[in-house]
Design a protein around this nucleic acid. Sequence first.
DNA 1: AGGAAATAGTTTGATGTCCAAGTACTTCTG
DNA 2: CAGAAGTACTTGGACATCAAACTATTTCCT
Lengths: 164, 164
Amino acid sequence: MTLAFDPIEEAGRNWDAHEWGATAAMKAATALTRAHQIVQSRIDTALAPLDLNFSRFEVLALLSFSQAGELPMGKIGDRLQVHAASVTNTIQRLEASGFVERVAHPDDGRAVLARMLPAGRRVAREAAGALAAIEFGVDGLASGARARVHRDLTGFRAANGDFS
Amino acid sequence: MTLAFDPIEEAGRNWDAHEWGATAAMKAATALTRAHQIVQSRIDTALAPLDLNFSRFEVLALLSFSQAGELPMGKIGDRLQVHAASVTNTIQRLEASGFVERVAHPDDGRAVLARMLPAGRRVAREAAGALAAIEFGVDGLASGARARVHRDLTGFRAANGDFS
DNA sequence: AGGAAATAGTTTGATGTCCAAGTACTTCTG
DNA sequence: CAGAAGTACTTGGACATCAAACTATTTCCT
């Protein structure tokens, strides 16, 4: 279903006509939402054949980059900025796929380590290739636009306390 | 939980170190995702006291802008680019809140019209004010950045067939 | 040392989204 | 004009996320 006009521009005209205010902000926020949906959908499509979605891939990538190939659950949640319950769910899914295992933390009886298994390391590399091949879904952004968006959104994230 | 560094930059360094490729694309896509999460969360927080979320608000806005204050379900899905099943769900929720009613389409026995009720029209206006007050969550983007992001992402959406 | 407070995870329940299948109605076609 | 094909919507199931309540363990404080 492709519309013959930009629904965001149409919404902007209506927004103005009704004097609802902040039209430019509305258009920027809505464009951001739509663009995100497109990117996410393309990424998930590329990862589906590998029995992964983006969340699960992010966990595998994080474990790939860690020294020992293992991290406590909480650390994973902090880094990926997702809720602890979501981490539990994601790790269970990865465990069911045979990509990670859960082991007790040696020094802290409360903590659980997620540890990468060989199949996980293999699929992570493969998934990275699949994502690079589709340019993370943003090949529709020329390199200039890509850098601008990255820079502007990084400033936005900083302004909103995403990191400091 | 605020990290003391940008996790996206950190991921970029690891990505490079492991030669996983397409680092710039990865950073742009990830920044887009995080920025979207921030905006969405701020919008939903602003709308929660009105018994709305962004999806339900979008439907009310669309109905507010329509001539008769009513639209067939399918039309709503097309415009907002969401699945028909999601429209059904969203309208049921709005109906339960007393914001819309569902009536049979006069000319097409298959179709159902969602029709705005007075309470819906009232809350839509109120919600629009609440969103304008927080600048749709993008007040962290200065007007220059806002226009750039809007323009670049509109180009991206067009390149991906979001409209033509 | 010993109880209060903090921390790490899991579980449960509410939301929301999509896909696939099903129902009902309309339009197309020979 | 009857059967085939298409369209509009709903339903049920899978999945993901988050918030709140709960368990277990550790740390802090006197």
